[in-house]
Design a protein around this nucleic acid. Structure first.
Lengths: 129, 129, 129, 129
DNA sequence: GTGGTCTAGACCACC
DNA sequence: GTGGTCTAGACCACG
């Protein structure tokens, strides 16, 4: 996995876990891969993975069962709230960034539409993706 | 100014300069505040400001005149290219983040529209903004 | 190491790295000494070394691996291009300087030949070198 | 005039004076332009010019006559020695730089010859030069 | 241990 | 006054 070296890797790993929960790759109650396995998958040091998981456990998103492994919480309501928060946060960040480049609300929408359209074309052309 | 402690301050200062160039607060050829003044304004160390400016100078966005100050480039074409790059980069980042939360292209557009609409309402309600 | 105090130390450190790459002391992919070690070797501050390396990293000559160290790029083509650039730049600088002292093209060549010949003699006389 | 911002301007101004003495633009005993005029010619601050001249006066290359101006020394022997020194220094610097890029003595000579040949072609092509 | 960032403070070159 | 460089020393992220 490729990481943006401007933001802490452990932080990006947290985002990665959120991502997998949102896509359903990690269902409520599901068991995460072993820490060492995750480290291999992400080509990152075990300590770094551990740090990310610790924070996710601290906030309740994950639960750790000693000797068994780490699991996604089964509290569906918590997950629902989490998803809402993540989306709203991302929308706000995206909006602020684009607005910060002096784009009007309309411009933001239309340029995003244009971007997506163009992106689809490129994706169609490509074999890999 | 408030900084996100997840990303290097010098990097955020660069973004800040880009922002001011895009909004027109910093016109082509305009003189930036003195480095020491910027440091005071942003409440960071002089060297941190210097580092941000150094990179902007290295890439040609700013030009430094010894003993006089730092200035926005007068090369309007370069600025135009820069703006294009910044916007496309932000669109890509925003899209990737939202797409990463398992949102479809349509959902991204509509939720962004909803977010903006809702934001306008809040803004109308508020006296400050 | 002795530095010329007329030109920035960090700049001379860059040249030093280029030099070692050209002589083969630093092979493609090779690991550089730790930043703190380099600082000791060159008897300069860690930050000064860091600044030099940052620029080399920014231009792709070096790659940084967090927690592991700094490495010479493995992109041999990039290195080849770099070498070409360095040589042409030095030739141009040398020519301009000598030409600036009112030497004709022929004089430049012949005096350089004479200089080298004389230098060889001195070197033969000396035990050290 | 264009200056290399990696080395002090006052130092480059000294070189400039040497250069003019070597080319004969400044004959022994000749009067230099007024400091303010030099500053204008070189698009540089008066203080910077003054600093360069002070050092040249201190080393005897120039002599200052209060109220009259600055003059090139009339000591022809001194000038001859100066020229010799400048040339040998430049040859040594050029050699060291090229040798430092791992070029053999022969390579240095032949690549310099090639450089000059190529340079003549370009110059012929150009109207300005 | 290794690199990356930030601060505080000093000194230099230039205008 | 303005920017550019360097130092010393601290703290963080990563392996």
């Amino acid at each position: 996995m490729k990481f943006d070296d401007k933001v802490p890797i452990y932080y990006q790993i947290k985002q990665h876990v959120y991502h997998e929960m949102m896509t359903g790759a990690l269902q409520p109650g599901a068991k995460l891969p072993a820490v060492r396995q995750l480290a291999l998958d992400l080509t990152v040091n075990v300590n770094t993975v551990q740090r990310a998981l610790s924070e996710l456990i601290a906030e309740g998103t994950l639960v750790s069962q000693r000797g068994k492994g780490n699991f996604v919480t089964s509290d569906q309501e918590l997950i629902a709230r989490l998803k809402e928060t993540l989306i709203m946060t991302q929308l706000a960040v995206a909006y602020d960034q684009l607005h910060g480049l002096n784009m009007s609300d309309d411009e933001i929408i239309t340029s995003m539409q244009r971007y997506i359209k163009q992106r689809e074309v490129q994706t169609d052309d490509s074999i890999n993706d």
